Simulated scan of single mutants.
Amino acid sequence: MDVRHSHGSTVHVLRACYHDDAHDLVALGGDHSVEVIQLGESSCRTIATFYVGLRTTAIAWSSRVSSPSSSDRWSIQLAVAASDFSLYLLTKDAGSEESVFRFGSGLSGHHGTVNDMAFCGGQSEDSSRYVASVSDDKFLMVWDLEPSINIASPSSPDGGGTPEGTSERAQPTAYAVAFPHPLTSVDAHPSTSKEVLVGDARGSVFLTDWRTDQEGDEQARWRNQAIVELLEPRALADAAPGLATRWSGSVAWRRDPSADFVGAAYGSRFALWDMGNLHGGKPYLAGPSFPEGGHQFRWCPTYPDYFAVSTRSPARGAAIHVHNVAYPHAPPTVFALARRPLYVRAFDFVACRGIPRIAAAVGRDVVVFYIGVDS
């Protein structure tokens, strides 16, 4: 049975929580607030609403999270980005009020739209300490949320100061790496605490060691820290003469123990790489997706053979393509959620066990649906 939830404003960002103690939680970013919902079999409920006052552009789940279904002492921690390029740490514990802590603004942060975020501390004690963000300003920034030095909190753009309680926490510090092109996507794998996947807007994916401190020119540092560079040839070919004016490339790491498989959506195609057999950085499998251009690529965390691609084009209405790598040349299963002019603004696989489910943002609503049935 499908679950439908109305956020109250347009949902721009949606991320499901993959952590074991909170696999039924989904975060929604709207025009002015971030809402966390808890999913049931046929219903959902809101357990937290964080007022940010700006449109959300990216969300990342910390490992410091547990759901009411797993503990009476549940807790939430999210990192989010807003349309003014500032970042926020959102926290709530059972029985306490929502806390909104602002950081990463002004001269110390991004100067372009923050397109994606991911916690990147691996499974160590730093799993909730470091969060990576990528932006149109061509920078990857890795933020230390628990720095040893205390920097004063910045004031808000309207001069109203920081939200209540933010002065009690030290301002995070950032390690920045410059890339040659705008960055659209970042992902981290739980098996590593030093590498992140970074996708740019022209068809390249970089496996980057962000903990390596390289000397030399800042603009070239990304090349020293890029352990592996993966290429989507057709996207690069289209970008070179300017045919692709704005690719919204999306990159994701398959969440299996090997950490070898990477997927991405660029333009009208998807691409898969096996880092155990690189083929010179070219994908081992590529295929057609939405002719109008794919927007997001997601692996299923519970059934790793499944991945899905969405588009932001309203030409075919709100639709998601689900693929199975076991049948690489089979056409995708198409899930049509709404007629045009509506489209899927964001989506993610839900990490609950059993038949895989997808949560998709369509307009002001979130639709949660199964991609199969009991056999």
Rank of each mutant, 00 (worst) to 15 (best):
R102G: 06
F335C: 04
Q171K: 09
H111N: 12
F270D: 01
H7I: 04
A318E: 03
A338L: 06
A81N: 05
I151R: 09
S33L: 04
L78I: 05
P304T: 07
Y370N: 14
K92M: 12
A361Q: 05
V251C: 08
P301S: 07
Y327K: 07
R339C: 12
R255L: 15
T91N: 09
D136F: 00
Y343A: 03
G317A: 08
E146Y: 14
W247N: 12
S204D: 13
V196E: 00
A226R: 06
A252F: 10
S148K: 09
E195G: 02
H12R: 12
S258Y: 06
A201W: 05
H329Y: 13
A259W: 03
A315D: 12
V26S: 01
L140F: 04
H323M: 13
P314Q: 00
L54A: 12
E195C: 12
G281F: 01
G165A: 02
P163Y: 08
A201F: 08
L39I: 04
D72T: 10
L243I: 11
F206K: 04
V334C: 10
S86A: 15
L28R: 00
S167K: 14
G112L: 00
T245D: 11
A244D: 01
L243Y: 12
D84Q: 04
L140P: 02
I37K: 05
F50D: 00
D209S: 07
V251Y: 07
G159T: 04
R255Q: 15
P147F: 00
P154R: 12
F297E: 04
R169Y: 13
R339E: 11
P291A: 10
A81E: 03
R202G: 09
A286P: 02
V13D: 05
P172K: 01
E232F: 09
F103W: 11
S128N: 07
W247Y: 15
I37S: 09
S268G: 09
D209Y: 05
A118T: 05
P356R: 06
L230D: 00
A118E: 08
P283L: 03
P328R: 07
A27G: 06
R345V: 04
A319I: 14
S289M: 08
I358N: 02
L28T: 01
A94Q: 08
L78M: 05
L207A: 08
R202Q: 14
P172Q: 04
T57K: 08
W253A: 06
S9R: 09
L140D: 00
A315I: 12
P288W: 10
S66E: 11
D187H: 11
N224F: 14
V198A: 03
V367C: 04
R202D: 13
P257F: 10
K194P: 00
E98H: 09
S191L: 04
A271L: 05
S250I: 02
A58L: 07
I320C: 02
D144Y: 04
H295N: 11
S135Q: 03
A22K: 06
T333D: 12
E232Y: 10
A58H: 07
D238W: 13
S313Q: 07
S153K: 15
D365P: 11
V134T: 10
